[in-house]
Amino acid sequence: MSKLTLTTEGDRHVIVTRRFVAPPEAVYRAHLDPELLQKWLLGPDGWTMPVCISEPHPGGKIRFEWTNGKGGAFHQTGEYLELEPFSRIVHVGRMHLPDPTPDNHVETRFTPDGSGTLMTMRMTLPDAGTRATMLASGMEHGMEDSYARLDRMS
């Protein structure tokens, strides 16, 4: 039931869906509350998020800083654009590696699914090349040797 889907749409979109056992209220909160985000939005094992700023109102700031404790570090900044409790979050975000990546515009929807939730995240990148690069950096992030690369960059 928890199977993730990851697909591309057109030239600029990436769509992710995932089902959760918990109701939309809880999944929505877990996407906005800094203390909860610090527990799960971490990527590969071994990484932590010592700084988590999430101001859930339109125009509110987002700042996530990750570290692997071995000198590897990067961060993401962004802003919330629209919030509809407990069904929809719209935000923009960019990674700093350390140069900022082009803005990723993200709409996350939470819809009731039985007693659980279906989450649908739709990312919109400025162009096809940016999307290809983002998908590629997802790969690097998942790879062991990306730690060495991050070490060199920091």
Partner: peptide, 24 residues
């Protein structure tokens, strides 16, 4: 392969989120 690796990173996050939701 890019898609497969991004999928793995996301799966790791959402598996963690399952545990967080279970304790909320």
């Amino acid at each position: 392969q890019w898609l497969a690796m991004l999928r793995r990173a996301l799966e790791t996050n959402y598996d963690r989120l399952d545990s967080v939701l279970a304790t909320m």
